Simulated scan of single mutants.
Amino acid sequence: MTDTLDFVLPPALEAHEPPEARGRTRDGVRLLVGRRDTGAITHHGFGDLPDLLDPGDLLVVNTSATLPAAVRLDRISVHFSTPLPGDDLLWLVELRRLAGKASRPYSGGGPGEWIPMPGGATLTLVGRQTDRLWQARLSTPVVPYLRRHGTPIRYGYVRRDWPTAAYQTVFAHDRTTGGAEMPSAARPFTPELVTRLVSRGIHLAPITLHTGVASPEAHEPPYAERYEVPEPTAALVEHVRARAGRVIAVGTTAVRALETAVDATGHVQASAGWTEHIVTPEKGVQAVDGLLTGLHEPKSSHLMMLTAIAGRPLLAATYQAALNEGYLWHEFGDVNLLLPR
């Protein structure tokens, strides 16, 4: 597996709260653009996005809603990740020890152990899926339970809780299910900006991929996640590609879904289910030309995907520019547009 980009991320460049709490609008974040054909790196506001794209380009967006997937107890927090196929009550969960405003991995627990949960529910640990993830069964349907008793997953760099609405994108449409973490590349979009994009002749198409919990301590590759690429989206991708337009994924989740849907002939087909597809520089990409994404942590597995799309030299130069110019990282931070030409 290709080594991922490594660098030192100063704590001062971590976004501690949404831009709205910093006196800005949702779309008031910065946009760092890197172009693979020329190697040029330029600096913009996110509101410049319509002018940076060409008529006929296609933005593929993730419509997954964000679940309030963390349930806090006295000493530990349970992070609900994804259900296991065929059983809506059996989920992958991560147990984390509460430590002030942050949390750390919790190594305790054993198969068969049950954990009393708020509201009279019980969580039973079935067995380990990985070193940090358990298969666990909740005594009541999980999503309605989380809507009553959960809070959004928050990592240590975010200093206080924010309501679930702060973790929803303008594209989230199905609140009966969702992902454990926000598809954050789409967070800066507003209805007004979407209108400007459409007015310029830029297409938008939906996919859905419900993300599981990340680990801030271990940069693991993603595991199986639920996705759907609907027929109209697959057809529009093929239409744009046939006319030499650019398919630009909004977020790494959209890349994963689209690349999963590529058939043996290199065409995107409608599909749905669970994907374990991992994009690496060795495998490359077939459906995606560009990527709009947040800034990722050092050695993150997501950086393999960015390397596959942008190439190592451009990615390294882009991240150095982000560090030099004080861009903000993480889900409430600034964004990065990687273009092929």
Rank of each mutant, 00 (worst) to 15 (best):
T252H: 05
F46W: 08
T4Y: 04
I248K: 00
E259F: 07
H302M: 02
H219P: 02
R72L: 11
H296G: 13
Q135P: 07
Q129K: 15
E20H: 01
I202P: 08
W274N: 10
Y145K: 08
N324W: 01
R154K: 15
L90D: 11
G34D: 03
E113V: 12
I248H: 00
Q168H: 09
R243K: 14
Q320F: 00
G127L: 05
L9M: 10
R196A: 15
I115F: 00
L339H: 04
F189P: 08
L31H: 04
A308K: 05
T253F: 00
A205V: 06
V194G: 05
G179W: 01
P221N: 10
K101Q: 14
T38C: 05
M305G: 01
K283T: 15
V335H: 06
R187W: 08
R26L: 15
V288P: 09
V8A: 13
T2Q: 12
V29W: 03
G273D: 11
L339A: 07
F189Q: 07
P116V: 06
L291T: 01
R72N: 11
G326I: 12
S301I: 01
I115W: 07
G273I: 14
V142E: 10
P111N: 09
L193R: 12
A264W: 07
L123W: 05
A272G: 14
R147V: 11
T307M: 10
D74R: 15
D161Q: 15
T140L: 12
L295P: 07
G34T: 06
R226Q: 14
L9P: 12
A244D: 15
Q320G: 14
A308T: 05
S81V: 07
S77V: 15
P55G: 09
P18S: 03
N62T: 07
Y106Q: 07
R36D: 00
L323N: 11
T176V: 08
A321P: 03
A21S: 13
H219T: 09
A317Y: 03
L89V: 01
P206W: 04
R24Y: 03
I202Y: 02
R246Y: 02
H210G: 04
G120H: 03
I248N: 00
A172C: 10
H302I: 01
L295R: 06
R175T: 15
L133W: 07
I309F: 01
I202W: 02
L197I: 05
L49T: 06
E282W: 04
M117Q: 11
A21M: 14
T122N: 02
V262K: 02
S300L: 05
M117R: 10
